[in-house]
Amino acid sequence: MSNGNLPEQIVFRIRRFSPGRDKEPVWKEYRVAYEAGMTVLDGLWRIKESIDPTLAWRASCRMGVCGSCGMLINGSAMLGCNTQISELASSVVSVAPLPNFPIVRDLVPDLQLLFDDHAALSPYIIRADSAEQENPTGEYYQTSKEMETYLQFTYCIKCACCMAACPTCATDALYSGPMALTQAHRYNTDTRDDGFEVRKQVLAGEAGPWRCHFAGECSRVCPKGVDPAKAIQFMKRQLVADALGLRKKRPLAPLLKKPEGIQRRPGIAEAPEPTVG
């Protein structure tokens, strides 16, 4: 993208907060020379290296994979590393910590709530045959069509942008929020999973999807195209059908045993020994 209209300098307005020292967050301004290809995260590094070494934020992969660098950029929740300054089309870039989470310091939100909500919804395959899961003798068989019913929702990187944009999360700490609900739905639709009743313990109550009113902000801000609002509405359909006794029971993915009596073709090497377990 061309940056023909961008000035030489970018003004970063950063919402700073140091616990113990500050009562309320304060806005500070920094000027940084613009370079082609500069992301918001690059800008923060430039400030830390050459203007103010005390500036704190969280980032790791710097390529939109780890989900560490969610922040409020010009009022919208986005990944700092994934946002080109040229994309913002503004010479002033405001950066604040993700709202709806306590601030640890400067741009670092405390995401404990997100992880607690996630864990409360058992985001893993639940089945009665625990012996098979501990010591697998084969694979669960799933068609690619079945996989496509949840694949989109697996791309979540837990960056918390959705929870920062969600109007309900702005007041309600009990609500599970778009991220955890999407993950619960991802497992509820997985044909290998049999944990609907377990997750329902949480979903049927106040933490469930009833607090979603389809304002759609989670889907608009999601940097990975996971579309949490879509998952949540599908989840409501499932739970409403369940409340009316109309929920279709789907067959559980069967175990696919290792093939027996098949000769390895000559010239194909043995797989290496497992390195773990």
């Binding site: 313990q201 049927a204 009833w210 409403v240 409340a243």
Partner: peptide, 9 residues
């Protein structure tokens, strides 16, 4: 645990 039913109604 009742919101599932109440919201359906």
């Amino acid at each position: 645990m009742r919101d599932q039913k109440l919201w359906t109604w």
